[in-house]
Computed example of a mutant assay.
Amino acid sequence: MRTIGNILWLLLAGWWLALAYVVAGVIACALVVTIPFGIASFRLASFVLWPFGRRAVFRQDAGALAMIGNVVWILVLGWELALAHVVAGFLLCLTVVGIPLGVACWKMVPLALVPLGQQIVPVNGPRAYPGR
């Protein structure tokens, strides 16, 4: 079922959302200071391209630099990418088939806003439940 969801996602929204993250990553890598933002953007592009079966969890070792970086990310790149997720989620929810995909798109809005200090893991992986 995840494969079918991922294929539908890729065709309906994943490819252009991933393209937005890649463009943001290239822009961020153009400046030496913002290369960590570019790396985070490329990591998110991979997740947005094929999201079902994976999830984002906060890393326990993320510190103050990640928090400061997330504030800068929101001001520079994050709000545009989050807005793209909101619009894509709305458009996907216009059809019955797209409603689950639209909800999944809206669940990615927080990740688009604060990606630093988060890690993409398999849903059934050992780090999927950080409390264990």
Rank of each mutant, 00 (worst) to 15 (best):
residue 100 P to E: 00
residue 24 A to H: 06
residue 110 P to A: 00
residue 105 C to F: 01
residue 23 V to C: 04
residue 30 A to F: 12
residue 98 G to Y: 04
residue 12 L to S: 12
residue 3 T to F: 15
residue 35 I to M: 00
residue 12 L to Q: 08
residue 62 A to V: 11
residue 89 G to Y: 08
residue 129 Y to K: 03
residue 68 I to C: 12
residue 25 G to S: 07
residue 12 L to D: 07
residue 67 M to A: 14
residue 116 L to F: 07
residue 22 V to C: 07
residue 58 F to K: 13
residue 21 Y to A: 05
residue 45 A to N: 04
residue 61 D to P: 04
residue 126 P to A: 14
residue 81 L to F: 06
residue 85 H to E: 05
residue 67 M to F: 10
residue 127 R to D: 14
residue 49 L to K: 07
residue 23 V to P: 05
residue 4 I to M: 13
residue 27 I to M: 10
residue 54 R to A: 08
residue 70 N to V: 02
residue 93 C to H: 08
residue 78 G to E: 03
residue 38 G to P: 02
residue 56 A to W: 03
residue 14 G to E: 12
residue 124 N to P: 00
residue 76 V to E: 02
residue 55 R to V: 03
residue 96 V to Q: 04
residue 15 W to Q: 09
residue 72 V to D: 05
residue 23 V to N: 02
residue 25 G to I: 03
residue 118 Q to N: 05
residue 123 V to R: 13
residue 54 R to W: 14
residue 74 I to T: 13
residue 99 I to K: 10
residue 8 L to M: 12
residue 52 F to T: 01
residue 11 L to M: 08
residue 65 L to A: 10
residue 131 G to F: 02
residue 72 V to S: 01
residue 60 Q to E: 13
residue 75 L to V: 14
residue 128 A to S: 15
residue 115 P to N: 02
residue 99 I to E: 01
residue 1 M to R: 11
residue 117 G to T: 11
residue 35 I to D: 06
residue 86 V to E: 07
residue 79 W to F: 05
residue 132 R to L: 00
residue 39 I to E: 02
residue 14 G to Y: 09
residue 107 K to G: 00
residue 42 F to K: 03
residue 33 V to A: 05
residue 95 T to W: 01
residue 90 F to E: 06
residue 94 L to A: 12
residue 60 Q to D: 15
residue 72 V to A: 09
residue 37 F to N: 04
residue 104 A to I: 09
residue 131 G to V: 01
residue 54 R to C: 05
residue 92 L to N: 09
residue 63 G to A: 13
residue 77 L to S: 00
residue 18 A to D: 04
residue 79 W to N: 02
residue 75 L to R: 02
residue 2 R to S: 13
residue 116 L to Y: 00
residue 71 V to Q: 07
residue 25 G to N: 04
residue 99 I to M: 11
residue 11 L to V: 15
residue 128 A to G: 07
residue 124 N to H: 08
residue 63 G to T: 09
residue 9 W to E: 09
residue 5 G to Q: 14
residue 22 V to S: 02
residue 32 V to C: 07
residue 108 M to Q: 05
residue 84 A to M: 10
residue 68 I to P: 03
residue 54 R to M: 06
residue 80 E to A: 10
residue 41 S to Y: 04
residue 82 A to Y: 06
residue 47 F to S: 03
residue 40 A to Y: 00
residue 97 V to F: 04
residue 112 A to H: 01
residue 13 A to I: 15
residue 52 F to I: 04
residue 29 C to S: 09
residue 54 R to S: 13
residue 128 A to T: 06
residue 113 L to G: 01
residue 34 T to F: 00
residue 117 G to Y: 08
residue 2 R to G: 15
residue 35 I to V: 09
residue 97 V to I: 14
residue 96 V to I: 15
residue 112 A to R: 04
residue 79 W to K: 09
residue 95 T to K: 07
